[in-house]
Write a protein that binds this DNA or RNA. Sequence first.
DNA 1: AATGAATGAGCGTTCATTCAT
DNA 2: CATGAATGAACGCTCATTCAT
Lengths: 215, 215, 215, 215
Amino acid sequence: MDCITRRDKMETKDKVLEAAVSLFNAKGYQGSSIREIAKQADVNPALISYYFGGKKGLLENLLLQFYEPYLALLNKIVEEQISVSPLYCLKQIGQHILNFQQQHIQLTSFVYREMTLDSMLVREMMSTYLKKETYYIQQVFTKGIELGECMNIPTEHAVIQFKGMLMMPFLYPRYLSEVLYLQPVEGYFVERYSRQIEQWIDSLQLLEPLQLQAK
Amino acid sequence: MDCITRRDKMETKDKVLEAAVSLFNAKGYQGSSIREIAKQADVNPALISYYFGGKKGLLENLLLQFYEPYLALLNKIVEEQISVSPLYCLKQIGQHILNFQQQHIQLTSFVYREMTLDSMLVREMMSTYLKKETYYIQQVFTKGIELGECMNIPTEHAVIQFKGMLMMPFLYPRYLSEVLYLQPVEGYFVERYSRQIEQWIDSLQLLEPLQLQAK
Amino acid sequence: MDCITRRDKMETKDKVLEAAVSLFNAKGYQGSSIREIAKQADVNPALISYYFGGKKGLLENLLLQFYEPYLALLNKIVEEQISVSPLYCLKQIGQHILNFQQQHIQLTSFVYREMTLDSMLVREMMSTYLKKETYYIQQVFTKGIELGECMNIPTEHAVIQFKGMLMMPFLYPRYLSEVLYLQPVEGYFVERYSRQIEQWIDSLQLLEPLQLQAK
Amino acid sequence: MDCITRRDKMETKDKVLEAAVSLFNAKGYQGSSIREIAKQADVNPALISYYFGGKKGLLENLLLQFYEPYLALLNKIVEEQISVSPLYCLKQIGQHILNFQQQHIQLTSFVYREMTLDSMLVREMMSTYLKKETYYIQQVFTKGIELGECMNIPTEHAVIQFKGMLMMPFLYPRYLSEVLYLQPVEGYFVERYSRQIEQWIDSLQLLEPLQLQAK
DNA sequence: AATGAATGAGCGTTCATTCAT
DNA sequence: CATGAATGAACGCTCATTCAT
């Protein structure tokens, strides 16, 4: 009985979250209305305020729902692999982050868009999560440079490039499908794309001497 | 007098566009209200509907204002340089696009965010502009592969990587400044970052044989 | 166990009533929400509907809780004292009503405010309680005039003045404390103020001949 | 043309104010909805926020609309008459305030009710207006006592009694009409009631020696 | 060209209440 | 008896837009 009750509760909250992710992804946070979400979730609009404390609470819930496991994943990979080989660690990050994003493709797309705004909430999320994320990745690059695995490039630029490559397909899934005819939703896209990322990582290792020659 | 009148008109329209770009950039299209824009532009709200045919018209105006010169620039570079050297052409594209984005940094940020939405308008812009843009870039990659300048990677993936690198700093200017302490607004950032992009382009040339060795 | 249960019930009802009086007094009936009351009473909101048959029932309960003992008190005083001396009876009324109001200061304040509204409920309360109250007081004045104790003024006006004096401090307790620096909550205020009322009552007796002289 | 425009504006604002006073008086501020007011004023609901900056602004507007002329009137009377004769000045106050209240009977009733609440706004109104009002009245009593015109009673109590008498009929107009069968709206009520107030004022003059005798 | 009143739809939210558990 | 999920109506308010001036 308790189980049923709990499951019912879960279902309502989850129905709302699912509908919210879908609508926020398609029309943006500001472009989606509580009523629309409730309708799509087949739920009373008042329940959204009841469960999440308002539309803003729903947004925060989703942001946490993304960044918490995201950072946990990142943390785990870095902790386990950085001492083995920084560049290999980078490859692992690339592959797992791509997988993670693909598994939460709508949430990812929406969160990445929302983080481009200039709001208190975004600033808070940046200082809470993106600072950590960036620290992890920079650490790996730095270690790679130290160990001579990686050419000596500014780690900030490397982070931008790396993140750009990883985020791009999930920020613009519709661009991929309608212009490039790629399906980021499908498994083999990530598989092939992550190999491409690995090539870029390899290039970090190899370019330096050549670069020096060029000079 | 007619001249003054016309100049006033221009100024009013421009004041609105300027205010709109600023607010759309900070709070998003849906998050900014006509009244707010009008207030910031010190203009009567009714004039926005009058001049631009409504809020949506203002949005379309800004999207064109971005993509028309953007594509003209891209078109010019490709036409002029592709026959010389595809990879050099790519570098030129990278450098000029970065400059272009930096010169319209708020507009760029806003347009790139808006294009992540799933709307009729976005689909239209994609089929009108992004298809062309992608065609140009893919053409360069293809030519590069044909001429043996560039390793044989899927051009779609290359486009994603290339665009990702170029767009990233201007999609997340606040991330750059607050987390990475980079100032995409300042000249030397683009200068240094474009050299980084060139390294990536160089890596396309060099990786292939090594990649083959790896196999 | 039954006893405990019943006591719990009593406590719950009383906790609600207490919280309701406090909130209704501060923010008005319409300005207070069931949830707020329930929260302050540390009780489930649904119980208010359950126990009192809704918010309106809670209001009626409180009105009765005020007017029933109020009228009983008035009735008792008039019955016992009117035959002795009408003016003395008036003084007794003044003193005891002041005391009664002070003992239920929040309830009094709230009820007196609520009775200024124009609603079915108020009309009902007026015809049920205020008619009786007024009848009692007018009777005393009439008797006083008959017996020559009191000057011949319109009893309606006398009632207004009398009630005005008695109600004023408890309708505006915050005015008294913040502007006049009087504390209607404290015992000696009523003590001193009731002597003031008695002076007014005395003046009823004395003024007439002098008034006539003045003319 | 300008005149017509201004008159139209005035009419809309005034229609809203009129409807608001009527509804606030009958059902209270919290009990009246913006839509209801707009409907009764035959006006678009959005215009209330447009003109008054929201429901609260409407309330503040009405409170000022009452207290500003009220205090101006009081100030004028006191300034002109206090030096002549404090007790005569009191009578003038009584008469003019009664007239003022009668001329704005609904507004008066509503304002007096609203001032019984415990809110920031009420506190502000008290410290802005009621402090002044009380200062004026107390000044008159004090002067009367100084000059020997008036018996030596605590001025705070005198203020309560005085205000109680003046406010009572307009706080409970429905009580007057339905229980006492008096019509505070009609001219002769004020006329007769103000004579009653004058009697009370006279009693202040005369009671003291008798009071002493009683002791 | 420019204004500001006016409109009607929709916003997020809160409300008192009901009901299954 | 007590709970908390759920409901539908209404809340105050803001929205983009229109229109007479």
